[in-house]
Computed example of a mutant assay.
Amino acid sequence: MLRQLVRSDWRGLPGTTLVVLAVDAEGNGYSPFATYDHCRYAPIDDDYVGDVYPLPEELRKSRKLRELYSDGIPDSAVPALVLYPLG
């Protein structure tokens, strides 16, 4: 599935797009791929752990998201492709 996504859906992404790998709920480092999301990523304290935030267009479309992120999104947040594991 990842190979197909790279060849088709992700083909047009800018080469500078950050790819973030999420750990599963148990903290295991190895888990099958489940899904992905286009969002923004900002590191917390160091470069190896961070949070994800919605894209500007998602915020414009969703009142609930605007309320959820009413405190703002860090200036350090950059566009990212986040890969999520099963679990």
Score class of each variant (00 low, 15 high):
G50P: 00
I44F: 07
D24I: 01
G27D: 09
S62M: 01
P56F: 01
V49H: 02
N28P: 02
Q4C: 11
G29M: 04
V20Q: 00
P14S: 15
Y41E: 00
V52L: 08
S31V: 04
C39Q: 08
G27P: 02
P32T: 11
L65T: 02
S62D: 11
V23T: 06
N28E: 12
T35V: 04
V23H: 05
I44A: 10
T16R: 09
Y36A: 05
R63F: 04
V19H: 10
D46T: 13
R60E: 14
T16D: 11
Y53L: 08
V6P: 01
L21A: 05
R7D: 14
W10N: 05
P32F: 11
A34V: 00
H38K: 04
L55A: 01
L13C: 04
Q4W: 10
S8H: 14
Y41K: 01
K61A: 15
G50E: 00
R3D: 10
K61E: 14
L13M: 06
I44V: 14
A34Q: 08
G15H: 07
R60P: 05
D24P: 03
L55S: 01
G15W: 05
F33L: 15
S8K: 14
Y53N: 07
V6F: 12
Y41S: 00
A25R: 13
A25W: 02
V52C: 13
V52P: 00
K64I: 11
T16H: 07
Q4T: 15
V23D: 04
V19L: 15
V6L: 13
